[in-house]
Deep mutational scan, measured.
Amino acid sequence: SGVNQQQLQQLMDMGFTREHAMEALLNTSTMEQATEYLLTHP
């Protein structure tokens, strides 16, 4: 699906929903950016 499943699982383990985590990974290129994205786009 174009996203790193390991990163997706890590974000879900942090408490984010699958949909939200996927959106973040699709819009960013690193785990750090994805986390930042999730925190700034709740």
Results as ranks from 00 to 15, higher is better:
1 S>M: 13
1 S>N: 12
1 S>K: 14
2 G>V: 14
3 V>W: 09
4 N>H: 08
4 N>E: 07
4 N>V: 09
5 Q>G: 10
5 Q>C: 13
5 Q>Y: 11
6 Q>E: 13
6 Q>M: 12
6 Q>C: 11
6 Q>S: 12
6 Q>H: 11
7 Q>H: 15
7 Q>V: 07
7 Q>N: 14
7 Q>P: 04
8 L>E: 01
8 L>D: 00
9 Q>L: 10
9 Q>R: 13
9 Q>W: 06
9 Q>P: 01
9 Q>V: 08
9 Q>M: 10
9 Q>Y: 07
9 Q>F: 07
9 Q>N: 10
10 Q>R: 08
10 Q>H: 08
10 Q>N: 06
11 L>Q: 00
11 L>Y: 01
12 M>R: 04
12 M>W: 01
12 M>K: 03
12 M>I: 12
13 D>N: 11
13 D>E: 10
13 D>Y: 06
13 D>H: 08
14 M>P: 01
14 M>I: 05
14 M>A: 05
14 M>L: 10
15 G>W: 01
15 G>K: 03
16 F>N: 04
16 F>C: 03
16 F>H: 07
16 F>K: 01
17 T>N: 14
17 T>E: 13
17 T>S: 14
17 T>P: 15
17 T>W: 07
18 R>H: 08
18 R>T: 06
18 R>D: 04
18 R>P: 05
18 R>E: 08
19 E>W: 12
19 E>T: 10
19 E>V: 11
20 H>N: 09
20 H>V: 11
20 H>Y: 09
21 A>D: 00
21 A>S: 12
21 A>F: 01
22 M>R: 08
22 M>L: 13
22 M>N: 05
23 E>W: 14
23 E>H: 11
23 E>S: 06
23 E>F: 12
23 E>M: 09
23 E>D: 07
24 A>W: 01
24 A>Q: 00
24 A>C: 03
24 A>T: 01
25 L>S: 02
25 L>D: 00
25 L>P: 00
25 L>Y: 04
25 L>E: 00
25 L>R: 01
26 L>P: 00
26 L>W: 05
26 L>N: 08
27 N>W: 06
27 N>P: 01
27 N>Q: 07
27 N>R: 11
28 T>A: 04
28 T>G: 03
28 T>C: 09
28 T>R: 02
28 T>Y: 06
29 S>M: 08
29 S>W: 06
30 T>N: 10
30 T>D: 07
30 T>P: 00
30 T>G: 05
31 M>D: 02
31 M>H: 03
31 M>I: 13
31 M>G: 01
31 M>N: 02
31 M>S: 02
31 M>K: 03
31 M>C: 08
32 E>Y: 04
32 E>I: 05
32 E>K: 07
32 E>Q: 09
33 Q>E: 15
33 Q>T: 04
33 Q>P: 00
34 A>R: 00
35 T>W: 15
36 E>T: 04
36 E>S: 04
36 E>N: 06
36 E>P: 06
36 E>K: 06
36 E>L: 08
36 E>W: 05
37 Y>P: 09
37 Y>V: 12
37 Y>F: 05
37 Y>C: 15
37 Y>W: 14
38 L>Y: 03
38 L>W: 05
38 L>N: 02
38 L>G: 02
38 L>P: 15
39 L>F: 13
39 L>P: 12
39 L>Q: 15
40 T>A: 14
40 T>H: 12
40 T>C: 15
40 T>Y: 09
41 H>R: 05
41 H>D: 12
41 H>C: 15
42 P>W: 15
42 P>I: 15
